[in-house]
Design a protein around this nucleic acid. Structure first.
Lengths: 139, 139
DNA sequence: TTGCGTGCAAAGGTTTTGCATGGCA
DNA sequence: TGCCATGCAAAACCTTTGCACGCAA
């Protein structure tokens, strides 16, 4: 695996630099197309999905499949490819996807690996629940 | 919300008792249809989805939308409608969805609520990662 | 009888795939 | 020149919706 030869293409470069320009933001395939259209360029949906899939495999972006019928969203990982990973929280009420830095999570990760044999991938894991704002506004 | 009058129907009863008969198992809408067909009965896909949605609203089953293009799966919650909730782990290698009982998770839940303002819903939250078996088999 | 549940078919949306063309090396 | 990437269209897939009919209350 990982032995794919790959060409450098205009679309791939533009897509990558677009994603790099919005670190921490969650982008759908449709967002990418719209961005290209707004820039006067075009890109096919199939190309977007193929490029994104490749980048996920390479580990430079993350893919989140939050809900059943809604589009997957992608996020440039950039420099937090190390210990400074942040987890994600998805509010079931307002639908927002939040970032969370928590010092206890690496410990939990370690505990679950040692006691339950499961190695958590922080990049793909999403906590579902209710955010503070929605909780304060009464459910 | 929640003020729906509801009729008792043959399909609803059979679906419910089928789900009750496989506690802790993960069932898709297609699985339900197949089970009915195998029993000599039939049920429409739309009915399955509508009944399942209702049961999710009632809190007696949980719905997991794990991957982008694959079907959502449902699970009868039964008696663990309380503190004895279990979390789920999805192995990205073999695709299995595992149950995990962990005493530390309620504490984490509390910590995140108090320090990060986010109220986690254990029923919907899924940890992504790699299971023990896959880890031992290399990769 | 009233109105909800069901079933079929059609629509909706996201993602994947086939195939001819164009671009990178 | 060889091979990969692209783009368009079509397909595949899961899920939702519309509408007429049937069944529960």
């Amino acid at each position: 695996m990982g032995s794919k030869s790959s060409y450098k293409t205009k679309q791939g470069d533009e897509l990558r630099s677009f994603l790099e320009s919005v670190p921490g933001k969650h982008i759908t395939a449709a967002d990418v197309c719209e961005y290209f259209r707004a820039s006067g360029k075009t890109i096919g949906m199939a190309t977007v999905y193929r490029q994104l899939e490749r980048m996920v495999d390479e580990g430079i972006i993350a893919k989140y499949s939050i809900d059943a019928g809604s589009p997957a969203c992608f996020e440039y990982l950039g420099q937090h490819l190390g210990e400074d990973t942040c987890y994600h929280c998805k509010c079931q009420v307002c639908g927002k996807l939040l970032h969370m830095h928590c010092e206890e999570l690496p410990e939990l990760q370690k505990h679950i690996l040692e006691h339950h044999g499961f190695s958590i991938d922080p990049v793909r894991t999403v906590f579902y629940g209710v955010c503070q704002q929605c909780r304060e506004e009464g459910k």
